[in-house]
Design a protein around this nucleic acid. Structure first.
Length: 222
DNA sequence: CGTGTTTGACCCGCGC
DNA sequence: GCGCGGGTCAAACACG
């Protein structure tokens, strides 16, 4: 794919997606967010930042580096958002309007929705959930985006010597999935496809911002 | 022991 | 109807 050059602005981001949210992020449902008039308070602004984006919520910043092992961050910055191969239009579309979904599919874990495809199994044509894909030039297949993922499958895909890995967000009520696959042409490039929107804040981000939030909360009293 | 990974089997949609 | 390919399940396994 044309991947690594941003001529199509609708499909690509100049830099790490986190820094350029395409649409206004959904407000975080939190008691702290109820600031009477909902004006632009520092607290509200901070909370805005906590709204879980569909893509990696943690930019490769300094605070998380130690946990990242030997990731070449300079390479990671060569990240571009692309539309998933099969659903280019839909993915971008969902990007614009994508609000709900990500919703925990209700059950989330428990019930084996395995019974009956319930379309849950197909995933082929149905594009009800927003999907975001981007290329990352990295030696690591898995980039730490701040969320916790559990691998639930791996498949060899056609026309590619590299297997595709399937991950699911481990948060109990979150149904976001992601696929990770190396490009057949250029194995240095990892294609990560996110499906759905997290309905919970990023753990690591919360951890990092926790003290700041407390301070803001305190200051907002005056 | 809890959590996450591996891996073969299974299911489903689609094209022929 | 059948085969193929992709996505998911779940038991077994590994690891801290």
């Amino acid at each position: 794919m044309d991947g690594l050059h941003g001529d199509d602005e609708a499909h690509t981001f100049p830099r790490f997606p986190y820094f350029s949210a395409p649409s206004t992020p959904p407000p975080l449902a939190s008691p702290l967010a109820s600031s009477s008039d909902g004006q632009h308070s520092p607290l509200a602004a901070a909370l805005q930042q906590l709204a879980p984006p569909p893509w990696p919520c943690t930019p490769p910043d300094l605070t998380l580096q130690p946990a990242m092992g030997d990731v070449d961050w300079s390479s990671l910055f060569q990240t571009e958002l692309v539309a998933p191969p099969e659903q280019k239009e839909e993915a971008v579309q969902a990007d614009q309007s994508g609000e709900n979904d990500g919703e925990a599919g209700g059950s989330g874990s428990g019930n084996k929705e395995k019974a009956k495809g319930s379309a849950g199994r197909s995933g082929k044509k149905k594009a009800s959930k927003p999907r975001f894909a981007f290329h990352t030039r990295s030696e690591n297949d898995i980039l730490d985006d701040g969320y916790r993922w559990r691998k639930y499958g791996q498949k060899a895909v056609k026309n590619s010597s590299n297997p595709r890995s399937y991950y699911r967000c481990t948060h109990p009520t979150c149904n976001v999935k992601k696929q990770v696959q190396r490009l057949a042409k250029d194995t240095a490039i990892v294609v990560t496809t996110y499906e759905g929107v997290h309905n919970h804040p990023c753990e690591k981000l919360m951890e990092a911002l926790g003290p700041i939030l407390k301070q803001l909360q305190f200051l907002s009293q005056f």
